[in-house]
């Protein structure tokens, strides 16, 4: 899955969980915890969702709380190797 698709998947999951319209998440740098879109009540399912997209486990001990700031930080922490949309996928 390319990075753009992953961003779309993350955005859809967060909005669906928050029961929010798309305009609540206008940019990938928008805070998702501070805006109340995600809370600690959602963390287990959110991590499991990330793992299903990555197709591998997250190393919980290696991540910092700041990775949950916004979609940009999630991409950087969990999907840094994802190809951009323009790159050919093998």
């Amino acid at each position: 899955m390319d990075e753009k698709s992953i961003r779309d998947e993350l955005r859809m999951w967060i909005l669906d969980r928050a029961g929010a319209e798309a305009d609540r998440l206008s940019g990938d740098d928008q805070p998702i915890l501070d805006e109340g879109l995600l809370s600690s009540l959602d963390i287990v399912e959110f991590i499991l969702f990330i793992e299903s997209v990555r197709e591998e486990e997250v190393d919980i001990e290696a991540i910092e709380p700041e990775v949950f700031d916004c979609i940009d930080t999630l991409i950087e922490a969990f999907f840094a190797d994802a190809p951009s949309a323009s790159e050919p996928q093998g």
């Binding site: 915890l33 501070d34 600690s40 919980i60 991540i63 949950f68 700031d69």
Partner: peptide, 12 residues
């Protein structure tokens, strides 16, 4: 803990 730190209680 902050909201973000609450997500990772082990680390906190």
């Amino acid at each position: 803990p902050t909201q973000a730190q609450k997500m990772l209680p082990a680390k906190y």
